[in-house]
Design a protein around this nucleic acid. Structure first.
Length: 853
RNA sequence: GCGGGAGUGGUGGAAUGGCAGACACGCUGGCCUUAGGAGCCAGUGCCGCAAGGCGUGGGGGUUCGAAUCCCCCCUCCCGCACCA
């Protein structure tokens, strides 16, 4: 405990107690904290334990909304708590400053994206400061500045060298509204809409830059040692979509129009069903379709391929519609039994997954079953449950993978249990060079090209001579964005029309060359920004290796779950790639991740201007103060849950803070209209009760910090305040015990309601004539273990598990004494009447259960 | 369909094997006020005058004891979805 003397005797005259005016004290303290550089982190300090606390940096839209408060102010409470516990906390902030909204604003209003962005940043800095959060502004990162994006370019070149960045033609998703391609992760929902603007995307064939995230697919599935929420791990795992199975090589049978013998490889997760394959299906885009199609089938096949190409992806992926397809007039030979099966094409087989070809086993696959039924193709059962006959008829596909199932009608494998049969079939295929174990993933390489001007230029040129694609040498970075690009009414990428940018010389041959006009996906910027916070202005390197070693990985990251398969997956990928390149040390960027919930409007709907349910934080701050907003967001429920805004709820926490104010500054006050009702018992007993209340609160609050359980933490502080309020105006007020309780209350309040805690703390210091010092430099107190154990109690007594009585007794009695006291009670006796006591269960002095018959 | 999360008073929620409903909102009554959308006190799960009974989405089970653990089912939210 500290050495603060007893409560100054403020006159119990209400007029003498100043009002709680958060709008006056909050800006004042924010200024003083900034002047004192209270939250600048000395990154070189290795005397204290380091704690890197990161919260997702905002996009500078120009307006901070309540969601920013919901993630950032509790994160600030973590920072403040850890500092009080002696940690050297690094809690930086910056801006994700490239991106489309700035360009859209430029197109609409003519203001340059850089100007729009920097103006918004200026405004948002003020708003962020109004939270009273302890951001270290000295480390601010702004991604649209050359001192940042030149290192995006440097990273790009390293990836290019390592073969982790490449360019290829691909059918990509194009947003017709934003006029950009999108990464697969950025196309959402069954309607295939742009993640940013909600417009339905279309397919286009374009040359694009990719990052080879697929190389890390397996490693990205490993979350070992990471403390991450289950939903995000599940989403990433799902997204990566690892499937184990086998590739099986079929061959084509000779036909009138082709000699046969071509290899057709299929991927299957069910090699155990190979004997049940009754036909084969190729994706309409499969390269062998043209050569295998029989002449008399070609017009129908071509028509189907054309139709497929014309159909939108939505139609094609709609699982509801009836399956379509056509036979191509060729046959494949099943490698296990030499059987000839017909080859079809159908759009339910996707060219981009597996080998773009499947063996169809209608008996054991729902889709194949539906297809076979539609076109009258045969169905052959090859798997049976233990109780089924070998030829039990199938009303639907039997897709069970029960290990007790066995193979039937499968030649030499008949009778084997499924797992063994599967393994034997694959082993035999491998031995005969007709197949191999295989793993397939659903994740695709990360498409990073964007046809936009407000982003990091991709640092390559196209040589007009014979050099081809040439990387800009490292010492010529950054490739600066031109300042004079102009938006054109017809849209498109202005860089394509900016001659000063476009025309350059080839670094290889010195001849004329054209610059790449694609810029990078802004998710590249956000995939490594936390390293840059450590040395935002360093000219020598993107990442300082010593600071990386000292501070990374990030200890705690907080932000929304909406980036589960975008930002959070890209960041893990880039970390692993940079580790392989020797740029950073660790292979995972964020040790512990927390996703807050979403704040809804008071109508329970998503906040939106059109619904008119938006809560403007600035307005709330000017009405209630930042501390009340912070506290309400923490009090409304578990942090990961979010929920609707409640206008009366914030009144409730504001009322609580006023009570804290009153009880601290006016301990002897008595409310008009009450008798000043002194609680029962002696002052000594009351003092002890108050100390017990304070130390129990401290114990609970300390525990709640570990799990970010803000709601119960605030509840405990309310309880303590209620206890103090009950003793206000009694002889207990102003005693040493009272002062201890007040002091603990303020210290516990400091991380979550930093302004009022600081103000009340300073007033107490001043009144006591002690030199001023910030409550935020105080140590987190330790609770007194003797006080938190009960010294008297009411023992709950159950009869057959139902509560029947509460028996007052001293703790520490032995079981015989407890039983005597309990069995003496009339209420207990009444319940035992006419029954036999079978046994009495004692639960560690906390409860007794009498079992009767 | 697959994966994940959740279901408790009028409301937000608390309790993760041991007194269900902490804390707060709202509501009711009272006090005090020139007044108050301020402050203070008391009450508030449901049924019942009471004694008492019932009660954590539904059903079953394990246990001396279940909101909590197990099995089956229902509902809602999120993500993925013809991925072979």
């Amino acid at each position: 405990m500290t050495d603060i003397p007893t409560t100054p005797h403020v006159a119990p005259d209400h007029e003498r107690v100043p009002r709680y005016e958060p709008t006056v004290i909050e800006p004042m303290w924010q200024q003083r904290w900034a002047d004192a550089r209270l939250y600048h982190t000395d990154l070189e300090d290795d005397a204290r334990r380091r704690f890197y606390l990161l919260t997702m940096y905002p996009y500078p839209s120009g307006d901070l909304h309540i969601g920013h408060w919901y993630i950032k102010t509790p994160t600030d409470a973590i920072a403040r708590f850890r500092r009080m516990n002696g940690d050297n906390v690094f809690f930086p902030i910056g801006f994700d400053a490239f991106g489309l909204p700035a360009e859209n604003a430029a197109i609409n209003s003519g203001v340059h994206p850089a100007e729009w962005t920097m103006r918004n940043i200026e405004r948002m800095r003020t708003q962020l400061r109004s939270m009273g959060a302890t951001f270290d502004w000295d480390s601010e990162v702004i991604t649209c500045l050359p001192e940042y994006y030149r290192w995006n370019q440097w990273i790009f070149l390293r990836l290019l060298e390592a073969g982790l960045a490449y360019r290829r033609m691909a059918a990509v998703d194009w947003c017709p509204r934003d006029l950009v391609v999108l990464a697969r992760e950025q196309v959402e929902g069954p309607d295939r809409v742009c993640w940013r603007c909600g417009t339905q995307v279309v397919k286009r064939d374009l040359e694009q830059w990719f990052f080879r995230i697929t190389r890390y697919a397996d490693e990205l599935l490993d979350f070992d040692g990471l403390d991450w929420p289950e939903p995000v791990r599940a989403m990433q795992t799902n997204w990566i979509g690892r499937s184990e199975g086998a590739e099986v090589r079929f061959t084509t049978a000779p036909g009138a129009h082709h000699p046969g013998g071509a290899t057709l490889t299929v991927f299957t997760t069910r090699p155990d069903t190979l004997f049940g394959a009754t036909f084969m299906v190729l994706a309409p885009e499969h390269p062998l379709v043209a050569t295998l199609t029989a002449p008399d089938r070609s017009s129908e096949v071509e028509a189907y391929v054309t139709q497929t190409r014309r159909r939108t992806e939505i139609e094609r992926l709609d699982t509801g519609h009836e399956k379509t397809g056509v036979p191509i007039g060729a046959e494949a030979i099943n490698p296990v039994n030499g059987e000839r099966i017909p080859i079809w094409i159908a759009d339910y087989v996707l060219s981009g997954y597996g080998t773009g070809a499947i063996m169809a086993v209608p008996a054991h696959d729902e889709r194949d079953f539906a297809f076979a039924k539609r076109f009258g193709l045969p169905t052959r059962r090859v798997i049976a449950a233990p109780d089924d006959a070998d030829d039990a008829p199938l009303a639907a596909a039997y897709v069970s993978k029960a290990t007790t199932d066995r193979l039937v009608g499968s030649g030499p494998y008949t009778g084997l249990p499924v797992p063994e049969g599967s393994a034997r079939i694959v082993a035999d295929l491998v031995a005969r060079d007709q197949g191999a174990s295989s793993v397939t993933y659903r994740i695709r390489d990360w498409l990073v090209s964007r046809q936009r001007a407000w982003g990091t230029p991709i640092p390559v040129v196209y040589c007009a001579g014979s050099c081809g694609i040439v990387a800009i040498p490292e010492d010529q970075l950054p490739v600066l964005l031109p300042e004079d690009f102009q938006y054109r009414p017809e849209g498109g990428n202005p860089l394509e029309h900016t001659e000063s940018f476009l025309r350059t010389t080839c670094p290889s041959c010195g001849g004329p060359a054209r610059r790449e006009t694609d810029t990078m996906d802004t998710f590249v910027d956000s995939s490594w920004y936390w390293w840059r916070y450590l040395a935002p202005h360093a000219n020598e390197a993107a990442i300082d290796p010593e600071l990386d070693t000292a501070w990374c990985p990030v200890d705690q990251y907080t932000g929304g779950a909406e980036h589960a398969v975008m930002h959070l997956l890209y960041s893990r990928f880039l970390c692993k790639a940079l580790a392989d390149l020797g740029v950073v040390r660790e292979r995972e960027p964020f040790r512990r991740l927390f996703n807050q919930g979403q704040i809804l409007g008071s109508d329970g709907e998503r906040m939106s201007k059109s619904r008119g349910n938006v809560q403007d934080p600035d307005e709330l701050v000017s009405r209630y103060g930042a501390d009340s907003v912070r506290l309400f967001l923490m009090f409304m429920g578990p942090w990961d849950q979010g929920g609707p805004w409640s206008p009366s709820g914030i009144e409730g926490v504001h009322r609580f803070l006023r009570r804290v104010w009153t009880v601290t500054l006016d301990p002897h006050g008595v409310e008009a209209g009450t008798g000043g009702g002194a609680p029962m018992g002696s002052t000594l007993d009351a003092e002890r009760a108050l100390r017990v209340a304070a130390h129990r609160a401290l114990q609970g609050v300390t525990e709640d910090h570990a799990g970010f359980r803000w709601n119960t933490m605030v509840a405990k502080l309310m309880e303590l305040t209620n206890s103090l309020m009950r003793h206000r105006g009694t002889p207990v007020a102003g005693t040493a015990s009272w002062d201890e309780a007040i002091e603990l209350l303020l210290l516990m309040l400091a991380p979550i309601a930093p302004h009022i805690a600081e103000e009340l703390w300073s007033r107490r210091l001043e009144a006591a004539g002690v030199m001023a010092r910030s409550i935020h430099t105080e140590a987190w107190p330790a609770f007194d273990a003797d006080l938190v154990v009960a010294d008297s109690m009411e023992l709950p007594v159950q009869v057959n598990g139902k509560l029947r009585d509460l028996v007052p007794m001293a703790p520490g009695l032995d079981q015989a004494e407890v039983e005597r006291l309990v069995l003496d009670r009339p209420k207990v006796q009444a319940n035992l009447d006419g029954h036999t006591v079978v046994k009495i269960v004692h639960v560690g002095g906390r409860l007794v259960n009498i079992v009767i018959r």
